[in-house]
Structure formats: structure tokens, C-alpha cells
Simulated scan of single mutants.
Amino acid sequence: MSTSRSQERAEPTCLYPTEDEIARFVVGPGRAKTWPSLATVLERGGFPKVDVMMGGRYWPAVKAFLDRRHHVGEHASARPLRRGEEGTDAQRPRPVRARS
């Protein structure tokens, strides 16, 4: 079974893809030229850096970073609950403060 070029892959071709391939997966081919500046900003927040020995960023770490950043996948519960959302302490009454 052959895959046509127009059909997108679900993952990069290897564990250490090129910056161009990561750019196409993360921001799409139309915005890939903005990737170098975006990657620099994301690195300040913990985005995986290019592994000098392997010549690329480790794709599973890139994906995990983006999943954490957007609170999806395994990291969906990592997002703090907002006021009014249900959670484990949703039924707990709020303490009453005395007015002074």
C-alpha cells in the first residue's frame, strides 16, 4: 500500500526530525518560516533544545511539551480548575471570613 505525497503523516519520519519537519508539523507548511523565532521563544519556557549529537529535537519530548502547554493527552488534568468548575473539592464549603 503506497502513500500519496498529499497525504500527511501522523508523526515525523524519525525521532530527531529536522527543524523544517518539526515546523511543518507544529505550525504547518504555510507558517514554517516563522518557526526559528517561535522555537527560540518556546525554548525559554522549557521547549526541548536541539540535541547536538543527534542533530535535531527529540520528537516525543517536543510533543509532550506541546501537550503540557495545551493541557491535552496525559496532561489534561494538569490544568488548574477555574472558579465554578467541578473538581474534587467542588462540594467543600468555602470558609467564612469575619468582617472587621
Rank of each mutant, 00 (worst) to 15 (best):
V96A: 14
Y16C: 05
I22R: 10
E19D: 14
A90E: 15
M54N: 10
A98K: 15
E86Y: 01
F25E: 03
A76M: 04
F65D: 02
E85D: 13
P17T: 09
F65L: 01
E19A: 13
S37F: 00
L38R: 15
R69F: 08
L15Q: 14
R5A: 11
L81G: 10
R24D: 03
A39V: 05
V96C: 06
P93G: 05
G55S: 03
Y16M: 05
K63H: 10
E8I: 08
R68A: 11
R82L: 13
W59N: 07
A39W: 11
M53Q: 11
T34W: 14
L42M: 15
T13W: 04
Q91V: 00
S77W: 02
L42K: 07
C14Q: 14
P29C: 05
D89I: 06
R83Y: 12
E21N: 09
R97P: 00
P36R: 02
S2Y: 05
I22K: 10
V62R: 02
L66V: 01
K63P: 00
R69P: 00
R92S: 07
R83C: 04
R44E: 14
M53F: 02
E21R: 11
D89K: 11
P17H: 14
R24Q: 06
G87E: 14
G87N: 12
R99Y: 06
K63M: 04
T34S: 14
A98D: 14
L15T: 07
A61P: 02
I22L: 15
T13L: 11
F25P: 10
L42T: 08
R69T: 12
R97L: 08
A64D: 14
G87F: 08
A98P: 04
V41G: 08
G46E: 01
T13K: 13
H71K: 03
A32I: 05
V96R: 13
R57P: 01
K63F: 03
F47V: 00
H75E: 01
R69G: 08
L38Q: 15
C14D: 11
E43C: 07
F47M: 07
F47S: 07
D89C: 11
G56D: 09
G87S: 15
V62H: 05
G46H: 03
S2D: 03
L38M: 13
G73I: 08
P48T: 09
G45S: 11
R68P: 00
R69Q: 14
P60I: 02
A78K: 12
Y58N: 06
P93S: 10
P93V: 04
G46L: 01
V27D: 09
S2R: 11
M1C: 07
T18A: 15
K63V: 02
